[in-house]
Design a protein around this nucleic acid. Structure first.
Lengths: 143, 143
DNA sequence: GTAAATTATATCGTGCACGATATAACTGAA
DNA sequence: TTCAGTTATATCGTGCACGATATAATTTAC
């Protein structure tokens, strides 16, 4: 008996991630943010003045995704990008005043999301930890 | 205290979905399939001769995603697309012989994936059900 | 029986995501 | 010191994903 998508864990994960993305969209759209942009904003809000590589490591994205994403955010006036004079290979990132103001408006989004799910905060944290345990078992990525 | 991506459930979900996607990629690449194409193939393998809309409902994708995806699969020779003479609005989908042969090769992929995680099958099923309960609570999608 | 509404699919534009490749800056070994 | 190797970022091409819109076929209301 061959497995069918609705029964597969991978599809549950895939479709739930999309559903969460869709649930965030109406919360982020008034702020003019996409979901990956929101992650960048919150990450820089917590720790500013980092390189593209450092931010990409935290968000698990490569530079081929990060660079255009960051350029769009620079164009929107939320992020500053500048080469590090000590090491011209690095591009250091920091929030503009507008960007920092936006982090404050965006900070309430996870709570608004959690409320919509109807789950307890502790249940959501459990779910998060289960997911991370799965994710981190997949790291080796070698057959 | 503003939340930071590594602590957020949404990011755990987002990054775990990407990690699973990445873990599937080396299993699917020898078959020439992308992950969404694999879902279409398995879904049609279980139940053939369905419309674009029916398949999209199962995979939770709209026609603006389905149509190009299905055209690529048609071009690859796995899927046939044809208008339903009873209702010319509908496009009915079925697997070609090549497509059906590919489902057999692709059927072992979830087991190979499950083995890599090191989780018990029952644990993976529990995880799936937890995810689906979250996903289905988000459906209303109205603030 | 025809106009309005609905349904099914397609098209267009934008933004990730990622493999492959490029390029410039730095580092280190001989 | 020079040049081979490494590191940090960028570019290019392809494939989703999705909002908005378009179009043709069918159904419904009158």
């Amino acid at each position: 008996m061959t497995p069918t998508p609705p029964d597969m864990l991978c599809f549950a994960l895939h479709s739930t991630a999309h559903a969460v993305h869709a649930a965030y969209a109406p919360l982020l759209q008034p702020l003019g943010l996409t979901y990956p942009q929101y992650l960048v904003l919150m990450s820089l809000g917590a720790q500013d003045d980092r390189t593209v590589g450092q931010l990409g490591t935290e968000l698990r994205l490569d530079t081929n995704t990060m660079t255009p994403l960051l350029k769009r955010m620079e164009k929107a006036g939320w992020v500053r990008r500048g080469r590090n004079p000590q090491d011209e290979r690095q591009v250091r990132l920091s929030l503009t005043d507008d960007g920092r103001a936006l982090t404050e408006r965006a900070a309430s989004v996870p709570r608004a999301f959690a409320e919509r799910t109807g789950f307890q905060v502790s249940e959501l944290a459990d779910m998060r930890d289960i997911l991370l345990s799965l994710r981190d078992r997949l790291k080796p990525a070698k057959s």
